Amino acid sequence: MNGPKGKYAWTVTVGEKGQFVIPKQAREIFDIHPGDTLILLGDEQRGIAIPPKESFSEFAARLFDTATADSGR
């Protein structure tokens, strides 16, 4: 699917066990390999997102740094 640069959309089919395959192009673009752990975020209003693991790691680090700083007050 062609769209704005850096923006992608794919379709997947959910199997009987609730599993789906991440398309090869998506795995290559986002450097996803067998055995990798992914984060699945859900919002009933906005849908499901699978953010790049690096983005989530940075977010979590900032969150915990903030929590540690706040506990020292």
Score class of each variant (00 low, 15 high):
15 G>M: 00
73 R>Y: 09
25 Q>C: 06
67 A>G: 04
2 N>M: 11
42 G>L: 02
59 F>A: 14
38 L>V: 11
31 D>Y: 06
47 G>E: 02
22 I>H: 00
65 D>R: 15
26 A>S: 00
42 G>V: 04
44 E>Q: 14
65 D>W: 08
57 S>W: 05
52 P>W: 06
33 H>M: 03
26 A>F: 02
5 K>Q: 08
68 T>C: 10
65 D>C: 11
41 L>F: 06
9 A>D: 09
25 Q>S: 15
51 P>F: 07
44 E>I: 10
67 A>H: 08
58 E>G: 12
18 G>R: 04
45 Q>A: 09
69 A>Q: 13
23 P>D: 02
41 L>P: 03
25 Q>H: 09
69 A>W: 11
32 I>K: 00
63 L>H: 11
36 D>E: 05
56 F>A: 07
62 R>D: 15
43 D>Q: 09
60 A>D: 07
41 L>R: 04
5 K>F: 11
21 V>I: 14
40 L>K: 01
35 G>W: 00
26 A>P: 03
10 W>G: 00
67 A>Y: 10
73 R>Q: 13
61 A>Q: 15
16 E>D: 07
4 P>L: 14
53 K>Y: 05
72 G>Q: 15
21 V>S: 08
23 P>A: 01
27 R>Q: 06
29 I>K: 12
64 F>S: 08
55 S>H: 09
73 R>A: 09
48 I>C: 03
72 G>D: 11
17 K>C: 05
6 G>C: 11
32 I>G: 00
39 I>V: 15
35 G>F: 00
59 F>W: 14
58 E>Q: 13
72 G>K: 15
71 S>M: 15
47 G>T: 00
38 L>D: 03
48 I>V: 15
5 K>R: 07
41 L>A: 10
66 T>V: 10
4 P>N: 12
6 G>R: 01
6 G>Y: 05
14 V>D: 03
53 K>H: 07
11 T>R: 05
35 G>C: 08
63 L>K: 07
5 K>C: 04
42 G>A: 08
46 R>Q: 10
72 G>I: 12
32 I>T: 01
71 S>W: 12
2 N>Y: 14
23 P>V: 00
36 D>A: 06
70 D>K: 15
7 K>S: 13
43 D>E: 11
14 V>P: 01
6 G>W: 01
60 A>I: 12
58 E>K: 13
8 Y>D: 03
52 P>R: 14
14 V>S: 05
49 A>E: 04
14 V>C: 05
16 E>M: 08
69 A>E: 15
39 I>R: 06
14 V>E: 01
70 D>L: 15
35 G>I: 01
50 I>W: 00
30 F>A: 04
8 Y>T: 01
56 F>C: 02
33 H>D: 00
1 M>R: 00
35 G>A: 12
52 P>Q: 10
64 F>A: 08
16 E>P: 02
25 Q>Y: 07
70 D>E: 14
14 V>T: 13
25 Q>K: 14
13 T>Y: 04
7 K>M: 14
4 P>W: 06
71 S>F: 11
2 N>K: 14
60 A>E: 10
28 E>L: 12
73 R>W: 09
34 P>W: 02
62 R>H: 13
21 V>Q: 05
11 T>E: 06
14 V>A: 04
41 L>M: 12
37 T>H: 12
